[in-house]
């Protein structure tokens, strides 16, 4: 009984603080969603007010049709999904081999991956640009995807290496006894790495969704291929006064990520922990 009341008291102190901080925290979201329904005049005079002066759906139409949000959204989805897949595959394959096999240069490769873990992307974007240009992929979707999935991922290789190293060797011995070859053994242990896969997918998807520098630089001459983050910028230039349209576009773009987020939410919290305990 004593513990129950102590818990109750702790909640009584913590909850109000958390609610106040939390509401301030998500205020920019609430403001954006509410601005999406406001008229220009209502937004201008509204200040911090969250209640729209009226429900004006024309903002959504403008954002979707005129400002090209449909295109930006499509590009963003394509970039995020493909880059995440490439990241995942290359990291899983490389991590598996690094963990399982001894081959010439393994230690060197491992060291180099660790060493380049902390290279700031911004500082090497020029040669990446030149490379993509020479491949003839500048201002194409493939170029953006390549650059996005090429420049990250060292951390994920280390994650997979760590995980596959911790798989009990009995398992591999048993697989060998059963006559499983290289590929079948890999397919056998890959499902065990689900927690790592979840973590890579979540982190890489979020970071690809938010990516700004690479899409900006690699689509400078082809605005049609911009993602949401970069497209917003041109929106600001061309339609400097249309804040409600912008807010509507933002509101539309929240939706898919919110869905991904809610579906994977338990992995956000438990995925990492699952990677540790599972």
């Amino acid at each position: 009984m004593a513990t129950v009341t102590r818990r109750g008291r702790a909640n009584l102190i913590a909850l109000p603080i958390l609610i106040v901080v939390g509401v301030i925290w998500i205020y920019p979201f609430l403001w954006t969603v509410s601005a999406a329904f406001k008229t220009q005049a209502g937004l201008f005079s509204g200040g911090a007010n969250l209640i729209p002066d009226q429900l004006d759906f024309s903002n959504f139409e403008r954002a979707w049709v005129n400002a090209g949000f449909d295109r930006y959204l499509l590009n963003t989805v394509i970039y995020s999904v493909s880059s995440t897949l490439i990241e995942l595959v290359k990291a899983a394959l490389c991590g598996y081999v690094l963990a399982r096999y001894e081959f010439p240069g393994r230690v060197l490769l491992h060291r180099m991956i660790v060493a380049t873990l902390f290279v700031p992307v911004a500082s090497i974007i020029i040669p990446q640009f030149v490379l993509v240009e020479q491949l003839g992929l500048l201002n194409t979707r493939a170029g953006v995807i390549l650059a996005m999935s090429g420049s990250a991922g060292a951390l994920y290789v280390l994650l997979f290496t760590g995980f596959f190293s911790s798989v009990p060797s009995d398992l591999f011995d048993a697989a060998k006894m059963d006559g499983a070859g290289f590929l079948r053994t890999f397919r056998l242990v890959l499902p065990l790495a689900k927690p790592i896969i979840a973590v890579v997918v979540i982190f890489q998807f979020v970071s690809n969704w938010n990516e700004f520098n690479i899409p900006l630089v690699f689509t400078l001459a082809q605005p049609d291929l911009q993602n949401l983050a970069v497209g917003m910028l041109s929106f600001k230039g061309e339609h400097a006064v249309d804040w409600t349209g912008f807010a509507a576009g933002m509101t539309i773009s929240f939706a898919p990520m919110l869905v991904v987020f809610l579906i994977f939410q338990k992995y956000f919290v438990n995925g990492l922990a699952g990677a540790i305990k599972g």
Binding site: I26, W31, V206, A229, M232
Partner: peptide, 18 residues
């Protein structure tokens, strides 16, 4: 948790504009 994670889903540049 969801509240504090939420800003992660906005592209950084869009957060800047807001």
């Amino acid at each position: 948790r969801t509240m504090f994670f939420a800003p992660l889903i906005i592209p950084v540049a869009m957060a800047g504009l807001i």
